[in-house]
């Protein structure tokens, strides 16, 4: 088992003929992802060379899903068109299969576009959106696995730690930390750093709690909003597996946007101190320094009798 994406999931790429889409489609196929094709409006009928194989291109997501029975679609479409691409995929998955996972990597989508797109996705209960502005989701396999996004595949290994994070490279840091104590990952999910996104921390915690392969969870937040606090309160009541938490931005000044559109302390709310405090209240193991995640995880596993 794993979360939402099995290691043999069939994946299509929206924007596969673009520079980013093509580059990452190639990397995903190299990793072992079952990448079955892609779509770009107006380029249907062409093929794209991914090095390990050639895959077909369709004009619409609907055509791609009908032909391939894809489980997931990853969006590398530029910001002005990304919300539309998400909604197209949501509608196609809903009509054809009644379910599907959409992963949006694109950074810089207007917030009001995302408000619309998220409402559209939420109207279709079988559809899950991960992102936008995220590294994607990866379920490492025994050989290969399903890498859907931009993360470096080679740093991962199959295992029992679930990772959920708002940040990209900080997720890689967390992966490296689990590897430093010889632990692999069940699934790693980047939920993205935008103010309005699809899947949140609570969705991920619930999925990890339900997943038999996952035995402990690493959760990485950052300043801004109150998603970490809400997730911590929820976890206290609903999660029995050990959680290790870190929050980036303890030194960030108020009122300044720290790279991610959502990473801002406004009106004194959304600070790292509040989030760490919420973690501690919920019995989450706290790492104050990302280099300590491995050590804290080890302690958590020992205390849970898992080592």
């Amino acid at each position: 088992m794993s979360v939402w994406i099995n290691e043999d999931a069939k994946v299509i790429v929206q924007g596969i003929t673009g520079r980013q889409g093509h580059f990452h489609a190639t990397k995903m196929a190299e990793y072992g992802t079952d990448l079955v094709g892609g779509c770009t409006p107006g380029k249907g009928g062409q093929t794209v060379d991914l090095g390990v194989r050639e895959v077909p291109v369709w004009d619409s997501v609907e055509d791609a899903i009908k032909t391939t029975d894809a489980d997931a679609s990853v969006v590398y479409v530029p910001p002005p068109f990304a919300a539309g691409a998400i909604m197209e995929a949501a509608e196609a998955f809903d009509r054809i299969k009644g379910e599907g996972v959409i992963i949006c990597i694109t950074e810089g989508i207007p917030t009001l576009d995302m408000v619309k797109a998220v409402a559209y996705v939420d109207d279709r209960p079988g559809i899950r959106l991960i992102g936008p502005n995220c590294p994607g989701i990866i379920t490492p396999g025994d050989i290969g696995g399903a890498k859907i996004g931009i993360m470096p595949g080679h740093i991962h290994a199959k295992g029992r730690i679930g990772i959920v994070s708002k940040s990209g490279t900080l997720t890689y840091e967390a992966v490296a930390q689990t590897m430093s104590i010889n632990e692999g990952q069940s699934t790693c999910i980047g939920i993205g750093g935008d103010p309005v996104n699809g899947t949140g921390f609570i969705d991920c915690l619930a999925a990890f709690q339900a997943d038999p392969q996952t035995e402990a969870i690493v959760m990485i937040g950052e300043i801004g909003g109150s998603a970490e606090e809400e997730a911590a309160a929820w976890a206290k009541e609903n999660v029995t597996k050990p959680i290790i938490g870190f929050v980036a931005g303890a030194t960030a000044p108020p009122g300044k946007r720290m790279g991610h559109a959502g990473a801002i302390i406004s009106g004194g709310k959304g600070t790292a101190a509040e989030k760490f405090a919420a973690f501690e209240r919920a019995g989450i193991y706290v790492a104050r320094d990302p280099s300590e995640i491995g050590a804290v995880l080890k302690t958590a596993l020992e205390e849970a009798g898992l080592l």
Binding site: S167, T169, L170, E222, T251, M258, G259, A263, D289, P290
Partner: peptide
């Protein structure tokens, strides 16, 4: 974003950049 300290940071990724600042402070 300019801050008041004396250690310059150059990092890839917003989350890691914040975490780097935090660890310097620690």
């Amino acid at each position: 974003v300019k801050l008041d300290g004396n250690i310059g940071c150059l990092v890839n990724g917003a989350g890691l950049a914040m975490a780097t600042m935090d660890v310097i402070k620690l």
